[in-house]
């Protein structure tokens, strides 16, 4: 995205990174998208409760600043691989919520034509190579995409999102090592929300910070407060610059929290109500960003309300689009297994 002009930049010299780097309009769009992610997931959850969506889903409510911050410096043709908790990444990379809802409803107008659902949501045209049902499954794939970028000299940067649980999978270690020895343009983003399903990182992971793992692969390991948009975006910006310059990968650990349970089967027995309420009341990423924007004079209450209203309409329209869309014909069951059947 284009940077702010020098005069404007000077007037914001003491503000955090994103307020110096991006225009007020761009930042208001970020708030818009953070709301869009939040309301999309709330809408999906409601549709699930009402029986309109089946299966399961993993909500990233509480992690919106992480998805938006990482994607902020990416170009449209840069690529990402995502996780089972990937709705936010998908929207942050540019997906339309209507086609996402349609996918959740299993409709032909969905991004995966009803074959993937929440866990495999993708938007290849916008560079999202897909969420993944296998923990750490997308990490080597991102390294392969970065290898393509290097071999074809496209200049693309690839981001691999994964959770704290993935850092104990072999694929994580193998992929980071290969990215480092081949100096590939890839950024590893560990969204550490404290728990791999029910098991806390304290119980599962030998290092205190997952970013420390970067030392083993001779790449920078950066820790950011994943609930502060500017911190995440700044780390991502630097990692993207490093990747594009051919200097190799970066591991960013974005410390955050999911407000909801792991999936729809979660009874929340492994964390306290007080802990959850504390994160929701005091460290909500949208509240934090919105307050900053208002305090720094980038938006007023009227502007905030306009964003909320616009998002509410987008969500309602998206759900309506999904409901009205056609379901796949049973006769098309075996489509897309092989290319010639497409």
């Amino acid at each position: 995205m284009a940077g702010a002009s020098k005069a404007v930049a000077d007037s914001r010299a003491n503000l955090p990174f994103v307020y110096r780097q991006y225009s007020p309009e761009q930042l208001r769009q970020v708030l818009h998208k953070m709301y869009l992610i939040r309301r999309f997931e709330e809408g999906a959850e409601e549709c699930y409760m009402r029986g309109l969506i089946h299966g399961t889903m993993h909500l990233s409510i509480g992690q919106e600043a992480s998805a938006m911050g990482i994607c902020m410096p990416l170009a449209e043709d840069d690529q990402i691989t995502s996780t089972h908790r990937g709705h936010g990444h998908c929207i942050a990379k540019g997906a339309e919520v209507s086609r996402m809802f349609a996918e959740f409803f299993g409709k032909t107008t969905g991004y995966c034509k009803g074959r993937g659902g929440s866990m495999h949501i993708a938007d290849v045209a916008k560079g999202n190579l897909g969420a993944n049902g296998i923990v750490a499954g997308g990490i080597p794939i991102a390294v392969g995409a970065a290898l393509s970028s290097k071999m074809m000299k496209t200049g693309k940067v690839v981001v691999s999102f994964f959770g704290d649980g993935a850092n104990n999978e072999g694929a994580f270690h193998e992929a980071l090592n290969m990215a480092a020895i081949w100096k590939l343009p890839v950024i590893f983003v560990c969204e550490n929300n404290g728990y791999g399903m029910s098991t806390s990182t304290a119980r599962s992971t030998a290092v205190k910070n997952i970013a420390e793992r970067a030392a083993a692969y001779s790449m920078p390991g950066v820790i950011v407060n994943g609930n502060i948009f500017s911190e995440v975006a700044e780390a991502s910006f630097k990692a993207v610059e490093r990747a594009r310059a051919g200097e190799g990968p970066t591991l960013i650990e974005s410390k955050t929290y999911r407000h909801r349970g792991h999936s729809k089967s979660d009874r929340n027995r492994y964390r306290t109500k007080e802990e959850i309420e504390d994160w929701m009341a005091n460290r909500d990423p949208i509240t934090l960003f919105e307050t900053e924007l208002r305090d720094f004079g980038f938006i007023d209450d009227h502007g905030i309300q306009a964003i909320r209203d616009a998002v509410a309409k987008e969500i309602a329209d998206g759900i309506e689009f999904a409901r009205a869309s056609p379901a796949p014909e049973i006769a098309t069951l075996e489509n897309y297994v092989y290319t010639e059947h497409a």
């Binding site: 690529q79 691989t81 190579l129 499954g137 990490i139 080597p140 794939i141 991102a142 390294v143 392969g144 995409a145 970065a146 290898l147 393509s148 970028s149 071999m151 074809m152 072999g170 694929a171 270690h173 193998e174 992929a175 090592n177 290969m178 020895i181």
Partner: peptide, 18 residues
Amino acid sequence: PISELGGAGVAVGAAVTG
């Protein structure tokens, strides 16, 4: 490297991207 899982994944990722 001796990384069959990662190596296969890199090959898959490269294939998907051209």
